[in-house]
Design a protein around this nucleic acid. Structure first.
Length: 905
RNA sequence: GAGAGUAUAGCUCAGUUGGUUUAGAGCGAUGCCUUGACAGGGCAUAGGUCGGGGGUUCGAAUCCCUCUACUCUCACCA
């Protein structure tokens, strides 16, 4: 077989993905196996693959492939989210470029364009997931706005309305003046920004020279003022309460009122009350029965009620009014001020508090229940401390109702029809009409009803995702098999927006939908693995606008999916943010598409590829070429087999608690170190010599086992090597090979061979220090003790040492230590390496004395411990046993070193 | 303002209910090695009083208190 000099992932990855798909390995339908299900956190249809996805998808794929190899019926459901605001904004922009205005073409036509856009671009991200190797069941690809999922949303809306949990109300809401829609609190991101506090004086009505000075961040809203409030106990203003002040520039008189809401210490102690443009002012206004004057249009420009600066944007107006106030000589001071400003998560526009009618979901019960089930452990979080964040959000005093309506078209339209003052919630217009007629008489026609124009929040459909992807609201066979899903893998940043709400939805509807199967559990997932944010080397979140994120696909092109997966995984453990090591170009400040960690992954693939080449290059014969070779190969095989059994136990442990990077690192070291550096070197025939068939086959078997074990992490290179190792039958693929299991192992045997490896390493070190070439044959003596005899008696051990350390002979030492022999202490045994040069006595003495000092300190500590009665009484026997062994080892070593020092004199 | 997390080698991180040689890995650095699977390599070396201080314990990187620094979440006074 002709094998390339290097492993080139590019063409091989595409080939294997196609192969797996054609074999339908990722397809899942219910059967009698145990299910393992994961629903993908649906990326936005507008999205392109970024580093966050790569991490998240790699992890899910590892879990899925691992479960698949363990014989589970793995169902990983992919899909996309319609992302109402983001997508609508994108389509609106696209249409505008074509000279089309959304409002001109109407809802139907707009949705037509939007769906067209979705068909064209919506699948891009899913194809990109395939390049990473994601083993999703693509036949199950879902979309949050497809018919069946939308029906579920409507069903749920009506159900909640009937239960009295959904209501409509006039409230102060977070308004996005760019997207022209309300937002939920969770969609508003606060950022600290520099701002000014304008101190403005308002003249007191009926006086010539009395003023009251207020402080505000938003001078452009003074035209909407309806009062000035002071604290009732504030002596500075006591006599003003009940009088009126005059708004500058527009000369409107407003009352001065007293309210304890005002903070005496802050600003000037006098607060302008603007109920239309501030949540707190609205509350104050309500208490005092004040008028609400709204001076802003929905898009954030000033309307006629402002009287001045009409048509100006709110920020333009702020700049201009500053000049006007100055000219009017009422701007007393401009104070520097740092404050946090709410921005729309999707459009980044500064959020405007605005009084609107919206639909709300009462969250009290939902939150209490969601809190309880996590507390009880029905949903487990990894890492555990994420439950703190979760609890904090859900606890009673922080609960606020969820604003679920959005003034958009791209989404599920709210199933409500208005007639006069009434609203009728129903699945269809006919039903709504029937309800209306029941109340108002049969004269009412469908045309008299007006449907609510709004759609529901995107998250109001995604919170149903674990149920709706199985069409669970419609028919339940699949739901009963796959639900609850095993694990959710997602970023902690959407713990409130999504994770908590899915838990709520699960407990709300699953009991009824599952019926007799509800005993299995009604939670949407048993466990949640929170991934960290991917950050750059300066710990900034990777983002498009900063340009500090490497291009995900470019990384795959360069390092292969396996390399990138390795890089992502080795960056960090569950839940911690990961620092991705892509360097930043100094000039452009953009991230380069490079990564040492990914490079390490690529190199790892190459290393394994070369090990494959090695195994494939020898001539094969029936019997080992010599007796030494035979015993070496047999012992090496025994040792490695035991090591596999041991290591797999450790891997199992890691996998169980999602310590994926630990599992990967352990496999990496095992394959690179134990397999390539040790095992293969042990069995490697001398140059030009053949290998015996039994050893080769056993080695190929080991290699195959290693490929199975590594497959979930690096699926492509392992599949490639798996097939090159030996001829495989049709359908005998690494992808579905059973995952290696832990088994009994002989610890004593492992220790002995590991001891030999330590000796070999020490010999190499000594050669290095003394400038003796690694391959110059040397002679080695062992001091004869019962331990040494037992050690050397292991068949093949001596030959392994000879072979790997280039020692031509090993003899027991009975007489005096030969000239120019350097002492080496391994465990409690002492070896002498005979080198062909005179030993520098002084240098050797210094080295030994340093060792001695260190050892004596160590032994002293252990002795102190053991002579402490309370230690001996309290510590577990195992620990004491260990300490005794440490002491014995240390004392033996001290003895050896002292002897050697004696010999030097 | 309330809450949470983190601090261990030059860098990125492990260290799983306190006890396995006076703390480990990977990368990087340094030295040596190159016709023999692999320079995308081999062999080896040097780096840490576990953020500071105090306490509990026979025993602390690990538990408690306190201080410092950074990060995050939520709520915010115009």
């Amino acid at each position: 077989m002709e094998l390339a000099a290097r492993y080139e992932p590019q063409d091989k990855e595409a080939k294997w993905y196609k192969h797996w798909e054609s074999k339908k390995y990722f397809r899942s339908t219910p059967d009698d196996r145990e299910p393992f299900s994961i629903v993908i956190p649906p990326p936005n249809v507008t999205g392109v693959l970024h580093m966050g996805h790569m991490l998240n998808i790699s992890i899910q794929d590892i879990l899925c492939r691992h479960a698949r190899q363990n014989g589970k019926n793995v169902c990983w459901v992919p899909g996309t989210d319609h992302a109402s605001i983001a997508t609508e904004a994108k389509v609106v922009k696209l249409l505008r470029e074509q000279g089309i205005k959304k409002t001109d073409i109407g809802r139907e036509a707009f949705l037509g364009h939007a769906f067209e856009w979705k068909e064209k671009y919506g699948g891009i991200i899913l194809d990109q997931l395939k390049r990473l190797g994601a083993s999703c069941d693509w036949e199950r690809t879902r979309f949050t706005m497809e018919e069946s999922l939308s029906e579920a949303v409507i069903k749920v809306f009506i159900d909640l309305y009937k239960k009295g949990k959904i209501y409509r109300g006039l409230r102060m809401t977070n308004w996005d003046p760019v997207a022209l829609t309300a937002l939920s609190n969770e969609e508003v991101l606060h950022r600290e920004e520099n701002s000014h506090l304008f101190h403005i004086k308002y003249k007191i009505e009926g006086t010539e020279d009395r003023y009251v000075v207020i402080a505000t961040q938003r001078p452009e809203t003074i035209m909407a003022d309806v009062a000035i409030a002071v604290h009732p106990d504030d002596d500075r203003f006591k006599d003003l309460v009940g009088k009126k002040a005059i708004i500058p520039l527009i000369d409107r008189a407003i009352p001065i009122i007293a309210d304890t809401y005002v903070d005496i210490e802050f600003g000037t102690g006098a607060l302008k009350i603007t109920p239309a443009h501030d949540q707190n002012d609205y509350e104050v206004g309500k208490r005092h029965n004040l008028e609400v004057i709204d001076i802003l249009y929905a898009n954030g420009t000033l309307n006629e009620k402002a009287q001045i600066l009409v048509g100006e944007d709110r920020f333009e107006a702020r700049k201009k009014i500053k000049g006007l106030l100055k000219d009017a000589e009422v701007l007393v001071e401009l104070e520097q001020y740092r404050t946090s400003i709410g921005h729309s998560e999707r459009t980044d526009a500064v959020v405007e508090p605005r009084l609107t009618f919206q639909w709300y979901l009462d969250m009290k019960e939902f939150c209490a229940n969601a809190l309880e089930v996590v507390e009880k452990g029905e949903v487990k979080f990894y890492p555990e401390h994420m439950s703190n964040m979760y609890n904090n959000w859900l606890k009673e005093e922080n609960v606020r109702d969820w604003c679920i309506s959005r003034q958009l078209w791209w989404g599920q339209q709210i199933p409500a029809w208005f007639y006069k003052e009434d609203v009728f919630v129903a699945t269809t217009e006919e039903e709504a009409l029937a309800q209306a007629r029941a109340k108002y008489g049969d004269d009412i026609q469908a045309t008299d009803l007006k449907r609510d124009e709004d759609v529901v929040d995107t998250w109001f459909s995604s919170w149903l995702w674990p149920i709706s992807v199985f069409d669970g609201f419609d028919k339940q066979e699949e739901l009963k098999y796959y639900y609850p899903t095993n694990v959710l893998v997602t970023g902690w940043d959407i713990i409130y927006l999504w994770v908590a709400r899915m838990i709520m939805a699960g407990y709300e509807w699953a009991p009824e939908l599952l019926g007799d199967q509800a005993a299995k559990g009604v939670q949407p997932f048993h466990e949640v693995y929170f991934t960290g944010m991917v950050r750059d080397s300066q710990r900034r979140k990777m983002s498009k606008s900063l340009g500090n994120s490497p291009d995900a696909l470019a990384l795959i092109d360069r390092y292969g999916a396996d390399g990138v997966r390795f890089g992502m995984l080795s960056s960090g453990a569950a839940g911690n943010d990961i620092i991705f090591d892509a360097p930043i170009d100094k000039e452009t400040k953009k991230a380069l598409n490079e990564s040492k960690l990914c490079d390490q992954g690529l190199n790892f693939g190459n290393k394994m590829w070369n090990a494959l080449k090695l195994l494939k290059m020898w001539e094969v014969v029936a019997e080992p070429v010599s007796k030494e070779t035979k015993v070496i190969n047999e012992l090496a095989g025994l040792w490695f087999e035991n090591k596999i059994n041991k290591v797999m136990g450790s891997i199992e442990k890691h996998m169980k608690v999602y310590r994926l990077s630990d599992a990967l690192m352990e496999l990496y070291k095992f394959i690179w170190g134990d397999f390539c550096s040790e095992y293969l070197e042990m069995i490697k025939p001398e140059y030009g010599k053949p290998i015996d068939e039994a050893t080769l086959n056993r080695s190929l078997g080991f290699f195959g086992t290693l490929m199975s074990a590594l497959h979930p992490f690096m699926p492509f290179v392992t599949e490639e090597i798996w097939h090159k190792l030996q001829d495989r039958k049709e359908g005998e693929d690494c992808c579905i090979s059973s995952y290696p299991k832990s088994a009994e192992f002989d610890e004593a045997l492992i220790k002995k061979v590991d001891g030999a490896i330590e000796l070999i390493s020490t010999i190499r070190k000594t050669r290095n220090e003394k400038g003796v070439k690694q391959k110059d044959p040397l002679k080695l003596y062992v001091q004869k003790t019962s331990g040494a005899e037992a050690f050397m008696a292991m068949v093949g051990l001596k030959d392994i040492i000879s072979k790997l350390a280039y020692v031509e002979d090993i003899e027991f030492l009975e007489g005096d230590v030969p000239q120019n022999a350097l002492p080496l202490v391994i465990g409690q045994e002492k070896f002498f390496l005979l080198i062909n040069q005179t030993i520098d006595v002084a240098e050797e003495k210094t080295r030994l004395e340093a060792d001695l000092k260190h050892l004596k300190g160590f032994v002293f500590g252990v002795e102190k411990k053991l002579s402490n009665e309370r230690f001996v009484q309290n510590a577990p026997p195992q620990v004491i046993e260990n300490e005794r062994k440490k002491l014995a080892d240390g004392q033996a070593k001290i003895k050896h070193i002292e002897e050697s020092l004696g010999n030097l004199n």
